[in-house]
């Protein structure tokens, strides 16, 4: 039985998945401000967060526009509750130590970059345009995160051990990125978004190469968490939103 998918709803969901993932990751990364291990990382983390927030403005802006209910990017970011968020579970994982933050970034970048390359070919010109812009930034994110994963994986005993723990902890949150549901399939069939199953091979290749050079072992066992894309999140997201949404929620009649 093929699910009947409302294409407008699918596109709205698809755009929220992209925009919510960049928003939530951008927020997480911004939590590092002033606390990074070296000054260069303070700068790089702020820059990454800045790119991701800029992409959020574009994705959620388009989502609101095509929804046609007078919700702009801010309304979507600050006035939805957890069940309406469509971000990947991976990006809401807490920062942990720098190794966790870095590994989370790399595992996401390795998906995000080919995803944007695919999106840049979208039949929807607005989607393609945003993806082309974001793609340049994310190519750099991936270059940077992959390089650091290699350097810290193949660094000291301690940095190696910490990167391995980070990989083991985060690995079960990666499956969701490449597992399509009805929405993903409908968008792929319509030529609006790339086929996630097709992305798997690219992601696998990239991740395997980098982790091998980093002397890190890919965890055994195929268990993967899922639910973020459908609005079923971990406890962490609610706390993030409580912080992020505090001002617009506390002062609904204010403009900023």
């Amino acid at each position: 039985m093929g699910a009947v998918v409302d294409m407008d709803a699918a596109l709205f969901a698809g755009l929220c998945r992209l925009g919510d993932s960049t928003l939530v990751l951008g927020h997480r990364v911004s939590e590092w401000c002033g606390h990074a291990p070296v000054l260069e990382e303070d700068i790089a983390l702020a820059n990454t967060a800045l790119d991701l927030i800029g992409q959020t403005q574009m994705w959620l802006g388009l989502a609101g526009e095509m929804e046609g209910k007078a919700r702009n990017a801010d309304a979507l970011a600050f006035h939805r509750d957890v069940w309406e968020f469509r971000n990947l579970l991976l990006v809401e994982r807490p920062n942990g130590d720098f190794g966790h933050t870095l590994m989370r970034q790399f595992l996401f970048d390795a998906w995000h970059q080919p995803m944007l390359t695919g999106l840049a070919q979208s039949r929807d010109a607005r989607v393609a345009e945003i993806a082309a812009k974001a793609g340049k930034e994310v190519a750099y994110h991936l270059e940077r995160s992959a390089d650091l994963v290699i350097r810290l994986g193949d660094g000291s005993d301690e940095s190696h051990a910490r990167m391995q723990v980070a990989l083991d902890t985060l690995w079960p949150y990666t499956g969701e990125m490449m597992t399509p549901d009805a929405t993903d399939t409908a968008l792929a069939d319509a030529g609006i978004m790339p086929d996630l199953v097709g992305l798997q091979a690219t992601w696998d290749g990239l991740v395997r190469d980098v982790l091998a050079e980093a002397t890190l072992a890919i965890p055994d066992g195929g268990f993967m968490h899922k639910g973020g894309k459908q609005g079923q999140h971990s406890e962490h997201l609610g706390h993030m939103l409580a912080t992020m949404q505090f001002l617009p929620r506390a002062y609904p009649d204010a403009t900023w």
């Binding site: 291990p37 070296v38 130590d97 720098f98 190794g99 350097r151 810290l152 660094g155 940095s159």
Partner: peptide, 13 residues
């Protein structure tokens, strides 16, 4: 907290 990162980068270099 950043000591292991700085040490790791040096060790790699």
């Amino acid at each position: 907290d950043g000591a292991w990162v700085r040490d790791g980068l040096m060790a790699h270099a």
